[in-house]
Simulated assay, not measured.
Amino acid sequence: MEGRFSEKSDVFSFGVLLLEIVSGKKNTSFHLQGLSLSLLGYAWKLWNESMAQALIDPTLLSEQNFEADILRCIHVGLLCVQESANCRPTMSIVLSMLTSEIVNLPTPKQPAFIEREVSSPSGASFDTPKPFSVNNVTITSIEGR
């Protein structure tokens, strides 16, 4: 956020990716009607309400019972995206957490970037998501001479 990068920046990105995989939603295009939460904020809200299973993409819950493993991934993902880089685990610890070498996981603290700022050019807020972006892009066919 302040332009400082560290080894914990990669941990943060990995946490976002983990939450995106588990939820089946992209952080950059996540939108909930009436809430200005990012995917991280929504995951945090569900975690605090003991409803983390509501974040899980239903296609991940097949005939085999992986819910406990997926909830562990959510827990680890939230540990990776904590506000303070000092509170985030290292990637080697993340690996140990995901492979259950570390059984008791610490309680995550509030993630960074939980609110999503959405505004129009005039400053008014949007309540409805756009299904696509409007880009003035053309496709050019390049051929050799």
Rank of each mutant, 00 (worst) to 15 (best):
P129I: 13
N27A: 13
V22M: 06
F14I: 01
E143D: 13
L95S: 04
P131K: 01
E101L: 14
Q33L: 11
A112D: 14
L78H: 09
S6K: 09
S100A: 13
P108G: 03
T140L: 11
M91Q: 06
D10G: 04
L19S: 02
V11W: 13
D69Q: 12
G41K: 02
P58E: 09
K109I: 08
E49L: 05
Q33H: 10
R4A: 09
N48C: 05
T138G: 03
E7C: 03
S84Q: 14
L79G: 02
K109N: 10
V103H: 14
E67P: 00
L32C: 01
S120C: 12
F113L: 14
L39S: 00
Q82N: 08
L17G: 04
S100Q: 15
K8H: 11
K45E: 11
P89W: 08
K8L: 06
L19P: 03
F30E: 04
A52M: 02
L18M: 15
T99R: 15
H75K: 08
I21L: 15
I93L: 12
E115W: 08
Q110M: 15
T90F: 11
V103N: 08
A52I: 03
L18V: 14
N135Q: 10
I142T: 15
V76S: 07
T138D: 07
R88Q: 11
K130P: 00
T140D: 13
R72N: 01
W47L: 01
L98K: 10
A85P: 15
E63S: 09
G123D: 11
R116Q: 12
N86K: 08
F30W: 02
K130D: 03
A54E: 12
C73D: 06
P108Q: 04
R145V: 08
L46E: 02
S119I: 07
T28C: 12
S29P: 01
S9N: 07
I21R: 02
N65R: 08
Q64G: 02
Q64M: 06
T28P: 00
N65M: 13
S125P: 05
D57Q: 02
E7R: 11
S141W: 09
E83K: 08
G144V: 09
L18C: 13
P129C: 03
K8R: 15
M91H: 06
Q82V: 04
D127Y: 01
P108V: 12
E63P: 01
K130R: 10
Y42L: 01
I142A: 15
S96N: 09
S84N: 13
D127F: 08
I70H: 02
S50W: 04
